[in-house]
Amino acid sequence: MKNRYKIVLALIAFIGITSCASEDNFKLTEPVGEFTITTPLNGDAIVLNETTPTNPGIALTWTPMDYTTPTEITYTVQLAPNGSDFTDAQDLVTTTNTNASIQSAQLNLAALTAGATPFVQSPVDIRVKATTGTSGSQPVYSDTITYLVTTYGCLGQYAVGAGIPAAGWNWDSPLSLICDDGVLTARTNLINDTFRFFTTSGDWNSGRNYPYYTDLGYKISSTLVNAADGDQNFRFTGTPGTYRIKIDENIKTVTIAKSTVTSGFEPTSTWLVGAATPGGWSWSGDNETELPLITDGIYEVPLTLNNNETFRVFLGNNGGDSWGEGSRNYPWYVSNGYTIDSELVNANDGDSNFRYTGPTAMRIFKINSVTKVISVD
């Protein structure tokens, strides 16, 4: 009997010791205090360049986190949209050091994903997460700094809707708009119905409807209108057919152009060249401005027109100096019965080009060959 008591007492003592040891072990993994990012400083900035993708985009250092027992600590650098709660945080790098460097290309993509505007200084939030591999540990987060990043390029986007028959209102085959330096383009068949642009495939909440662009000051092709359908999608009102869709986030335009070729210069387009246009009197470096067919008989383009400068309409583009491809000056349109906007006059400069007399501004230039009206809106 005495031996039984001894066994029971020993067992109780062993359980108590084990329990205390477990409790002590748990307490030993508890974090103590806090840790902070020391560099860069809050509000520091960088301009990223696509020609140096492996250069450091951000180099961080931070004070070590203290746990109640010496243990290996894993640190993870996180980036999130400015002012967010890090619910959508991206993990950029994981290390056991108290410093890390993120290459420019990686930071550029992460910042764009977090909503940075290409070529515009945009804030993103950065913090460091500390964890240990010991049972009972818990993550601890550093202070958050705001880093100002000027990104390049842009993320591809998507479009779905009944107005794009190949896509429809589902995510089985969305139209992909490929991005190059802030300009998104795609070629697709359009019919007289609705569609919407999206930044994330499969995410209905990432949609950008017609008012999204107009509220930001975008100029939009006149055959793309607000559907006024509750969701205020885009509606295509032009002649059904194959078109190039272009969203230019640099100059803030959403345009379409009748498309008959998959590459090279579009034979259905005309071209604007002259000092009144962004490219001046030059065909080099794509300086000419495409004046595309946006529906049967209507040519239209948004562009910045310069006050009191001249230009001419050219009928073709061979990829080089296309002066000999044929052109039409101000008197040609007058003699063919066109009504011309009062802000456009005969330059009387020897070639009788158009002279633009309105304010220097982004305008929509349109030639309606059906009604024979040339307008500047």
Rank of each mutant, 00 (worst) to 15 (best):
T214L: 05
T134Y: 09
T357K: 11
D377E: 13
L28I: 00
L112A: 07
D321A: 01
A167R: 01
T262K: 01
S352F: 13
V128S: 11
N308A: 08
T36P: 00
G238W: 07
P123S: 04
I145L: 13
N317P: 05
S263P: 04
N307T: 15
T18G: 03
T262N: 14
D321W: 03
V225R: 07
S342M: 03
T255N: 02
T96F: 02
S176Q: 14
P211G: 07
N233W: 03
L107Y: 01
V183S: 02
P53E: 07
N233E: 06
K219T: 11
A347Q: 03
G326W: 01
V313F: 07
G297A: 08
G168I: 02
T188Q: 08
G350N: 01
A21V: 15
G57V: 04
I191W: 06
A227F: 08
L293E: 10
T237I: 13
L305M: 15
S282F: 06
P118A: 07
E72K: 00
T87K: 10
T277H: 02
L107C: 08
F354L: 09
S221P: 01
A13R: 03
K372C: 05
I340S: 08
P40C: 09
N336A: 12
Y158G: 05
G202M: 03
A89K: 12
S104Q: 15
S284Y: 11
A159H: 00
C20K: 13
T268M: 04
I164Q: 00
F86L: 04
N209P: 04
V313A: 06
E309H: 12
N348V: 11
G168W: 04
D181E: 13
R355W: 02
I126N: 09
L112H: 09
S173G: 02
C20H: 12
V301N: 02
N108M: 08
E343T: 15
G133F: 03
T52I: 12
V345K: 06
G156R: 12
D248S: 06
Y212R: 00
W62C: 06
N82F: 14
E249Q: 14
A89P: 01
N346D: 15
V128M: 04
Y67I: 02
Y141P: 06
C179V: 08
G168R: 08
T255D: 02
V93K: 15
L60C: 07
M65D: 02
P70H: 08
D377C: 05
G280I: 10
L60K: 04
W169S: 10
K246V: 10
A100C: 07
L11D: 04
P292A: 12
I164N: 03
T134H: 13
T239H: 04
K2L: 15
A167M: 04
Y210A: 07
D296F: 09
V225F: 05
F234A: 01
I102G: 12
V301D: 03
L175E: 02
F14S: 14
